[in-house]
Structures are given as structure tokens and as C-alpha cells.
């Protein structure tokens, strides 16, 4: 589904230049849930943004679904981008639009013959009752659910998640991970998740690339833990962490 070959990217600053990606090659199979993990500044977000052409490599090749993104003109590129959903760390919702209008937004930009309905996706993420609310009235977790619903409504063949839980607390993180896991199961799209949070990758992905200083150090197969994540309420967990060894 995704093939990256010898990707290089340097950001040119006034004083120093930063080699953000150095000779990156990577394959992600169709339907796979793939993780990219590393500390901040490792280049993982830049790598993710190569996949939907938000960032262009200085050299190398990006191929998504047998299309070389690096060789497309702007119009062809937009047609590729419309089939890729993206979930952001800061949610990036339009605060002056209601939840329903936000979720419907991608459908107003392009034609999507197989899209879902607003009601379907809102039900899927558990926000049917917030349809007419504005983002300002929602909690962080709810905002991210809207972001996910907005990405899912087009039935993307590829879902990119850029630090989807990094702006959320631990309990909300687990809720969002659960929604993303369910989405991957239900819609069978290929997913790529970038995060520095190990438990998120562990519960969402089958394989993960470990990045450091713009390079992929290793690609590992993730051993799924047998215990399913038990969602404990925040206070219970606080007592567990603070009052016990």
C-alpha cells in the first residue's frame, strides 16, 4: 500500500540546517496497522506527512496504492489526498462550525461515491447527541472523536494519525485508542500511527518503525499483550499509582 524509497528531507533554517529524514525506506502492506515511534524531533511526523504529500522529499520516491505521489501535478495530488484520512494532535476542527458541519466538511470538497453519513460516523464514535454542538463546547476527547469521524466519513483507504492522543489525558487516550482500533477493524483501511506513547502503538499496531534522528533504526513486530486493556476510572488509577508501591 505504501512504499517509501530512499527518502531524504532537509529543513533549511537561517543558522542551521536540519536533516529531518535520512535515507528512509519502508513498506506498509494493505490493511496493515503500522506504527512509527520515536522521541520528539526524531522525524516521525515529517515521515507521516510524506505519505499524504503535505511534505515533499528532497529526493526519493513515495508510492501510495501504486501511485507515485512524487510525480503528480497538483490536481492529481489532490485526488490522491482526498482518499487519505488524517487525524491530528490538535484536532484541527473549525471552531465556528458545528460538529455535524465539521464532519461533513470533506464531502463538500470532493465527490465521494461510497461515503458514510454524518449520523453513521457520529454514532460510530459515540457522539450522536453532540451533532449540533460547537467544538468549543466539547472536551478534548470528544473533539478528537469528531476529528476521527471527519476522517472516517469518506471511507478512506488509508488513515494517518499524527500523535492522535498526545493532547489527551491517560483515560481519554484509552478511549480514543479504542475508537481507532474499532475503526481499523470495521473499515479495514490501512492505518499509520505516529506517536511517542508506547502503549498506544502496542494496542493499535502490528508492526512499528523505531525512529531516531531522522533514521529508521529498526522495524519490529509487536507482541500483542494478552491482557486486554482494562479501563479504570481516573480516580481509581490515581489511588493505585500514588498510594501503592
Amino acid at each position: 500500500m505504501i512504499r517509501l524509497q530512499n527518502i531524504e528531507k532537509t529543513f533549511y533554517g537561517k543558522e542551521t540546517n536540519l536533516l529531518a529524514l535520512n535515507q528512509i525506506s519502508l513498506n506498509v502492506e494493505k490493511g496493515e496497522a503500522f506504527g512509527i515511534i520515536g522521541e520528539s524531533g526524531a522525524g516521525k511526523s515529517t515521515l507521516l506527512r510524506m505519505i499524504n504529500a503535505l511534505e515533499k522529499p528532497d529526493s526519493g520516491m513515495v508510492m501510495v496504492d501504486n501511485v507515485r505521489l512524487t510525480e503528480l501535478n497538483r490536481k492529481e495530488l489532490r485526488l490522491q489526498q482526498k482518499q487519505i484520512g488524517m487525524v491530528f494532535q490538535q484536532f484541527n476542527l473549525l471552531n465556528n462550525k458545528t460538529v455535524a458541519e465539521n464532519v461533513r466538511l470533506p464531502l463538500t470538497l470532493h465527490d465521494y461515491p461510497n461515503c458514510l453519513t454524518v449520523d453513521d460516523v457520529l454514532e460510530f464514535v459515540g457522539l450522536e447527541d453532540k451533532k449540533f454542538s460547537y467544538p468549543g463546547e466539547l472536551s478534548g476527547g470528544q473533539k478528537q472523536r469528531v476529528g476521527i469521524a471527519r476522517a472516517l466519513i469518506t471511507r478512506p483507504k488509508l488513515l494517518l494519525c499524527d500523535e492522535p492522543t498526545s493532547a489527551l489525558d491517560q483515560n481519554t487516550t484509552e478511549e480514543i485508542v479504542e475508537v481507532l482500533r474499532k475503526a481499523h477493524e470495521e473499515f479495514k483501511m490501512t492505518s499509520v500511527v505516529v506517536t511517542h506513547e508506547l502503549p498506544v502503538i502496542k494496542s493499535l499496531c502490528k508492526r512499528a518503525a523505531l525512529m531516531e534522528a531522522g533514521e529508521i533504526k529498526d522495524i519490529i513486530t509487536i507482541k500483542q499483550s494478552d491482557k486486554s486493556i482494562i479501563q479504570k476510572p481516573y480516580l481509581e488509577r490515581a489511588i493505585e499509582v500514588l498510594a501503592h508501591d
Binding site: N52, L77, Q80, Q81, I84, M86, F88, N92, L105
Partner: peptide, 9 residues
């Protein structure tokens, strides 16, 4: 960035 990721003109 969101608009661009959706392929908006």
C-alpha cells in the same frame, strides 16, 4: 494543513 490534507483547492 487540514485543508491541504483533505486535498482542498
Amino acid at each position: 494543513e487540514t485543508a491541504q490534507s483533505m486535498g482542498a483547492t
